[in-house]
Design a protein around this nucleic acid. Structure first.
Lengths: 95, 95
DNA sequence: TAGATAATTAGATGATAATCTAAATAAATG
DNA sequence: CATTTATTTAGATTATCATCTAATTATCTA
């Protein structure tokens, strides 16, 4: 019944159009920060910030690979997000 | 492929916990502003603001009834939202 | 190990958003 | 028609957020 604190960070993360775009980009394939950066105009620091927000929300995962950090979409959490939405809005039994 | 401008306002609307709570409340039954207000501590002006944000995002609808305004959850848009999420994150054909 | 490359962290700034009080609008009612 | 009730609008304030530049950390390689 109560909303998990977890959800808060997810919704916050999804509220920004750039972050949603990052998720779209990662949907196709996992990518390093530099690769992701090619899709945007803002600074690396800003991208790093957005990636961190997505990571805190558990929407993406990171792993090291040499100097690079490879970000991947956390699909299981995305699934969870969909379930949550369904839960959030599904009709009751008497309507 | 491109995101509708519409979606922006939806995500913005959902980013606030109070607004999500309003949606929860309206899920059970349509309610006047005063009724909705019983669930919150903030001022009527603030509630009015939140309701307006939800309305702009088309997540709720309003109708007059005497002095009262009755807010209802716009379920068809919620459905649409779910479809959008599915679209946004569904796996491609080659994975 | 010095220099280059990859990314993050720190700190500042401007924009946006949540909230408040007070005033305005609109409908109902005595 | 003046007053009460319901809600919104206006304007101000404070907090949060997206973004920037500069500095830092970490890794690789010559």
């Amino acid at each position: 019944m109560h909303e998990q604190p977890h959800h808060e960070s997810m919704f916050q993360a999804l509220a920004d159009v750039q972050r949603r775009k990052i998720l779209q980009i990662l949907k196709h394939k996992e990518q390093s920060v530099a690769e992701i950066k090619t899709h945007f105009d803002f600074s690396g620091a800003t991208l790093s910030h957005h990636l961190n927000v997505l990571k805190q929300a558990d929407l993406v995962r990171v792993r090291r690979e040499g100097q690079k950090r490879i970000y991947t979409l956390n699909l299981s959490v995305v699934e969870e997000l969909l379930l949550m939405f369904n839960e959030m809005f599904k009709r009751g039994q008497n309507d």
